[in-house]
């Protein structure tokens, strides 16, 4: 099908974008990469009166990597985070989960337009980057006509496809805190085809102490639950050596903590099983990375 009729504005500044958004009220929607919004319009699941295209707004397409973390502007395409450029390479050093998870987001043609921030604003529980924002303890920067604010991830995600963003607002960037010293990450997922939405995915962070024993293990899952959630698996492996921890105990703990739903692609039981499998695969990989980062 085709989208229902709407009107369109492509303001040249952030202030103008906010002006149009507040003038048009509830019926207006921000258009970023369009890779989730346009399908919704064509399927007539949404019929906004006005699209406010932010693609011409300057200054939103930067990746800034500092010692504190990586700030990803609202117009940074998935593809740009995957590497190649110096900014993406710096980002991958500061927070390796970003590029690792982005590699699982859709296909090249979609990654050329879709944005990381758009994924987060879209708040799809099957999206990778919402869980990465949660797992890294990130936040989003929000601009409204009355000013700007930084919203922590836990206050941002409200439900599937639902956030706490006010009507007249633009998320200008997302911030992913740096991976701490002596920590490592891993990401893995099961999808029916390369690039498809995950049947189940897992991102993990393992932190070691000075003796290379596990001091923390945390995980966030994709396509499991209604909003991104971070699960603490530390109790199963605390104090155990990084190269010989009982990862299967952590996987069992994870299976007990999650509450997956069934859909067309997988039942709840199968998803729970995959949570265990992926946890068991990713934790040792993250621990190995933590060991090599400790050595460096």
């Amino acid at each position: 099908m085709k989208p229902a009729p709407f009107r369109y504005a492509d303001p040249g500044t952030l202030d103008e974008a906010l002006e149009v958004l507040s003038a048009e009220g509830e019926g207006a929607k921000v258009l970023a990469g369009g890779q989730s919004l346009l399908p919704l319009l064509s399927m007539r699941l949404a019929a906004p009166a006005v699209l406010v295209d932010i693609n011409r707004v300057p200054g939103l397409d930067t990746i800034e990597a500092t010692g504190d973390g990586v700030r990803v502007g609202a117009l940074v395409r998935h593809g740009a985070l995957l590497g190649g450029g110096p900014d993406a390479d710096a980002a991958a050093r500061v927070q390796p989960l970003l590029a690792r998870a982005t590699a699982h987001v859709a296909h090249p043609a979609i990654r050329n337009r879709g944005t990381t921030v758009g994924s987060i604003a879209h708040a799809d529980p099957s999206g990778e980057m919402t869980s990465v924002l949660a797992l890294t303890g990130g936040s989003v920067a929000v601009a409204t006509p009355s000013g700007t604010s930084e919203i922590p991830w836990a206050d941002f995600f409200v439900g599937p496809l639902e956030t706490s963003l006010p009507a007249a607002a633009v998320v200008t960037s997302a911030f992913f805190p740096a991976l701490p010293p002596r920590a490592g990450t891993a990401f893995a997922e099961i999808a029916r085809r390369r690039g498809d939405y995950a049947v189940c995915g897992a991102g993990v962070v393992v932190t070691l102490d000075d003796d290379r024993r596990v001091s923390a293990a945390r995980a966030a899952y994709i396509s499991v639950g209604l909003v991104p959630e971070v699960h603490d698996l530390t109790e199963a492996v605390a104090g155990q050596p990084a190269d010989a921890a009982d990862w299967s105990a952590a996987a069992a703990l994870a299976r007990g903590k999650v509450d997956p739903d069934a859909d067309l692609h997988a039942g709840a039981g199968y998803r729970r099983h995959l949570v265990g499998v992926l946890t068991g695969r990713t934790l040792p990989a993250a621990a190995a990375e933590a060991v090599s980062r400790s050595a460096a």
Partner: peptide, 18 residues
């Protein structure tokens, strides 16, 4: 799929005005 400025994109997920 078509190429816009050399990069492949889904032409059903881009508006003509863009």
């Amino acid at each position: 799929t078509v190429l816009v400025d050399g990069a492949p994109v889904r032409s059903c997920l881009v508006l003509a005005v863009q």
